[in-house]
């Protein structure tokens, strides 16, 4: 969908959260990833792709978004990873 991305509201941005999206940005870039969140101040997107080890994150500036397309919804496992990937890590501490 072609959209005036900068001027959407929280509810509209929320519709894309937790979805895999394809975004056209800048002049001729195309990005793909799971949409973690949209900053309501700058309309910037946080896109996450998961690999074997960890995850790769792209922060895409709201002003650069040209076109956005939803590819698919996240399954339960992906949703869970998306929800927790920026939370401070709490490693279990083994006290003697």
């Amino acid at each position: 969908m072609l959209c005036d991305w900068l001027h959407l509201g929280p509810q509209e941005w929320l519709q894309f959260v937790n979805k895999e999206v394809k975004v056209k940005a800048g002049n001729d870039d195309e990005l793909r990833g799971w949409l973690h969140t949209v900053d309501p101040v700058s309309a910037s997107l946080v896109l996450v792709t998961f690999g074997h080890q960890g995850a790769s994150v792209v922060v895409l500036m709201g002003h650069a978004v040209r076109e956005l397309q939803v590819l698919r919804e996240a399954d339960e496992v992906t949703s869970q990873r998306l929800r927790t990937c920026f939370l401070p890590h709490r490693k279990p501490r083994l006290e003697p």
Partner: peptide
């Protein structure tokens, strides 16, 4: 709307902190 905006913003700020 306020609840959604807060959630989106908090998640974004957490992301920025993680960088």
């Amino acid at each position: 709307e306020q609840r959604v905006r807060s959630m989106l913003r908090e998640n974004f700020l957490r992301c920025l902190l993680s960088v």
